[in-house]
Design a protein around this nucleic acid. Structure first.
Lengths: 211, 211
DNA sequence: TGCTAACATGAATCCTGAATCAGTTTCCCG
DNA sequence: CGGGAAACTGATTCAGGATTCATGTTAGCA
């Protein structure tokens, strides 16, 4: 295995830093466009405007670039979500803000969502960790909200976190990926906002009246 | 493009039929295990116990096999879900039965879920159609339930269908794929059952319009 | 039994593309 | 300046694997 001499961002000059981030961006684009396996190093280096050999100064392998892309963007996404919800008061409001931020991010990084799905077979841990890290942060926030009486108690917060992530992921996929829209239509947003509101609300429902 | 002479199941003798379905099963296994791109025709034919050349008597290409696998299993899944929910009365009960059936099916066809995710870059339509066909059937059922007053009205049934599918997909992924369990733990099941119950229930909550 | 179409074989072909490396250029510090 | 380290180059190497094909085998029907 190669020593990954210039792999860490810290030890790079400004010039090297620029080249590295160019490769990262080209990787995101090409992986997203053609798919991991169809993407050739030649495509990527061409996209970055460097020679093929240069690639291996910054990454050990194609797989290594994949990891770097997903890692990098994963941090960005989590930071974005944390920031978007931090400003809002009340869990239900935070949920809505979170979904909105997630959709906005997905629209901007359409490719990433598809790349993550691909990563399952490129590096299983990468795929798993993408969701786990999101879920862990989400579950912690939900736990706090439950303890504060803001939302209803559940049997398992982690499952709740995955369920809510699933809603966002699938609804985003439907409109932003399948329909290639730039935003999720308002009707869809209001549908899930109401859904989530009802699902999480702390008030216990009256027993359902006969139909 | 090859003429796919013996591609359709109809024109096959019993012997040919058996070989075809062996290849299909081997494909599901090998695609699931190694991933589409890592899976070689040699792996697949070996798994099916036939020679490499035989493969091309039944499928035009590796991609063609992928399509056949996803198609075949897709029909099975939809039939399974339809059957599981048909017996149950009441939409909320149907939901719970549907989730249970989906989890059971996922546990039995772990590989398929991962294969579908891969198919996004092998054949985009295949991927899309997998979810679309599930969603269409789901949305139709939900529409009926809404019109019957069984569940709350929503702004967009299709979005509701995707949201519910997302819940099933992610929760199934968490326990059956990530944790490699044979069943989703009861606490997780009860969590989403309650969640879905609250989310769909026809009673509208006291309006909590924040302003 | 013999004949034919369906079925099966697996070695050979041929292409693709990841990774390498011997050498060149750029940059900066003394 | 001048020298060395950091960047960069791109033709070449090399292995893997999808697909083909010339040939052999089976099974059912007349």
């Amino acid at each position: 295995m190669a020593p990954a001499v210039r792999a860490e961002a810290g030890s790079l000059t400004a010039r090297g830093e620029r080249t590295r981030s160019r490769l990262l961006a080209a990787g995101e684009e090409v992986f997203g466009q053609r798919g991991y396996h169809e993407a050739s190093i030649a495509d990527i280096t061409q996209g970055a405007g460097v020679a093929q050999g240069t690639f291996y100064l910054y990454f050990d392998s194609k797989r290594d670039l994949m990891r770097a892309v997903v890692d990098e963007r994963g941090h960005q996404l989590r930071a974005t979500l944390a920031h978007a919800t931090a400003a809002v008061v009340g869990r239900i409001g935070k949920e809505q803000a979170g979904f909105a931020a997630y959709f906005a991010w997905t629209a901007r990084h359409r490719d990433l969502c598809r790349i993550v799905r691909q990563s399952e077979y490129v590096d299983a841990d990468l795929y798993r960790d993408w969701y786990r890290q999101l879920a862990d942060a989400y579950a912690a926030a939900l736990r706090t909200a439950i303890d504060g009486g803001e939302i209803a108690e559940v049997d398992d917060v982690e499952t709740l976190a995955y369920a809510l992530m699933g809603i966002g992921d699938f609804v985003g996929m439907r409109w932003l990926i399948f329909d290639d829209r730039r935003t999720v239509p308002p009707r869809a947003v209001s549908t899930i906002n109401k859904l989530v509101d009802r699902a999480l609300s702390a008030e216990s429902l009256p027993v359902r009246r006969g139909r």
